[in-house]
């Protein structure tokens, strides 16, 4: 069964085997406001944990999306190009950003689980 982990910068990674699907949390999309553009990496790009993976833009803000773990990009959500609003409407589902081949599963240990993340958001 897929498990979702979160970073303090509000990226999520949904883990299915050695593949992780990365996006931004519902809290993050709410803070950003209407998303107008998402810049995605090239497939095959090697990401390192904490490094820039994508950029998400609203009208008045631009935020880097950091890789929750290291690994190679295996897929990106090309639909976001024409429909960036999907990130607002369904961040955890159709609004995903990219898929990554997880290089080191141990890196997941430092991330928050669903309950921890919800508690973390409450403190903000």
């Amino acid at each position: 069964m897929a498990e979702t982990r979160y970073t303090k910068d509000h990226e999520y990674i949904r883990i299915e085997g050695d593949t992780g699907t990365v996006g931004i949390s519902d809290y993050a999309q709410g803070q950003l406001g209407d998303v107008v553009f998402v810049e995605l990496p090239e497939i095959g790009k090697a990401l390192s944990k904490g490094g820039e993976a994508a950029v998400v833009e609203s009208v008045k803000a631009a935020s880097e999306v950091y890789a929750p773990v290291s690994g190679e990009v295996t897929a990106v959500n090309a639909e976001l190009e024409s429909a960036p609003g999907t990130v607002n409407e369904d961040p955890a589902g159709k609004g995903w950003f990219l898929k990554i081949k997880i290089a080191d599963a141990a890196e997941l240990d430092g991330l928050m689980n669903e309950a921890e993340y919800q508690n973390y958001v409450k403190t903000l």
């Binding site: 553009f37 609203s58 008045k60 803000a61 631009a62």
Partner: peptide, 12 residues
């Protein structure tokens, strides 16, 4: 498309 600009993107 102001997110390209300095007042939002600063050093980027």
């Amino acid at each position: 498309l102001s997110t390209r600009e300095q007042h939002i993107r600063r050093d980027k």
